[in-house]
């Protein structure tokens, strides 16, 4: 079952052609039931705007989307009752205590008071529930946001940077909570900068850059997509320069070990032939398994325009 489906979803801020900003540019993706879907991208890439459109707080300027198969306003409103979400920083009434803030969320979601206590216990805030929200640390605010998210035992959980401001212990707890929710069969849509967390937690991933999806799929497929090789030669600089001119190259990155080169095809013989033709003789050539972080950096750095073209 499609839990989230977007089709050419677009958001442009401003109406003047010269001054308008295309925050989300025809994004299309599908999240299936039970997936833990990572939504990655650098700051300003359109992640939060996309989530905002799904949650009904930002009006799309183009395209369409559905939640639980519903795409009309009435259906979407009903579908959103099956969603628990946090967006950017936790937004609560600063003059109220944690419990009263959850009472408001609970009233909107139509859940009882006992559920508030359960969720406060779950995120470890039961002891501070009577304290004013404005006295909370950022980590506690994030936990309260997570508690609000889980109040209605949602089928779809959307978390936008849930580990923001958390210490390592807090991050681990968030990961554990996400793991528990995923094991219960919840569908999770997670936007995060913590790539190693996403690689460990998510089953699927989409990487966005400048409002467009540059790659998407199962995490395992994305990290092994294309061919990545580690090259060494006597003169690194010449090697890197030559590989940047190679027609099938998708990325070139210098590391301590050598030059890591992304290729759109697996024809390594052509690479050695090309380099020999340039007067460069390799001392080392080996396949290189990229981490999600490396894929992310390759796809989202500014000189990766060629990748955008290939992916789209």
């Amino acid at each position: 079952m499609h839990i989230i489906q977007t089709s050419d979803l677009t958001k442009r801020y401003g109406t003047h052609v010269g001054k308008s900003v295309l925050a989300v540019d025809r994004i299309s993706f599908t999240v299936e039931e039970g997936q833990v879907f990572g939504f990655l991208g650098p700051n300003g890439s359109g992640k939060t705007t996309t989530i905002g459109m799904l949650l009904g707080i930002i009006n799309p300027t183009g395209g369409a989307f559905s939640l639980f198969g519903a795409s009309d306003p009435k259906g979407l409103l009903a579908a959103r009752s099956r969603v628990g979400a946090t967006l950017e920083t936790p937004n609560f009434y600063p003059y109220m205590n944690g419990r009263d803030n959850l009472r408001i969320a609970a009233a909107i979601k139509g859940v009882g008071r006992c559920r508030i206590e359960e969720c406060l216990e779950l995120v470890g805030l039961a002891g501070r529930a009577k304290d004013c929200f404005k006295t909370y640390s950022l980590g506690m605010k994030q936990r309260l946001a997570l508690a609000a998210t889980m109040l209605n035992d949602p089928e779809l959980i959307i978390l936008d940077e849930p580990a923001n401001g958390l210490d390592p212990q807090g991050m681990r707890e968030i990961r554990e909570i996400i793991g528990i929710l995923a094991s219960r069969g919840k569908t999770i849509f997670l936007s995060s900068h913590l790539l190693w967390e996403v690689e460990r937690t998510c089953s699927h991933v989409a990487i966005v850059r400048k409002g467009r999806i540059v790659t998407m799929g199962k995490v395992k497929e994305v990290v092994s997509e294309g061919t990545s090789v580690l090259l060494r030669a006597a003169d690194r600089t010449t090697l890197a320069g030559a590989m940047e001119r190679y027609p099938e190259v998708t990325s070139v990155r210098c590391t301590d070990d050598g030059i890591v080169v992304g290729l759109s095809s697996g024809d390594l013989a052509s690479v050695t032939r090309y380099l020999a033709g340039q007067g460069i003789y390799l001392s080392y050539l080996a396949p290189h398994r990229q981490s999600l972080e490396e894929v992310f950096i390759d796809l989202t750095q500014d000189n990766a325009d060629s990748m955008t073209k290939i992916a789209s």
């Binding site: 009904g56 707080i57 979400a85 946090t86 609560f92 408001i104 969320a105 909107i108």
Partner: peptide
């Protein structure tokens, strides 16, 4: 300014 209206909508209220 506190973005609590936005949170109310995220929690399930329509605008």
């Amino acid at each position: 300014s506190w973005r609590t209206g936005r949170q109310n909508v995220i929690d399930g209220l329509s605008k």
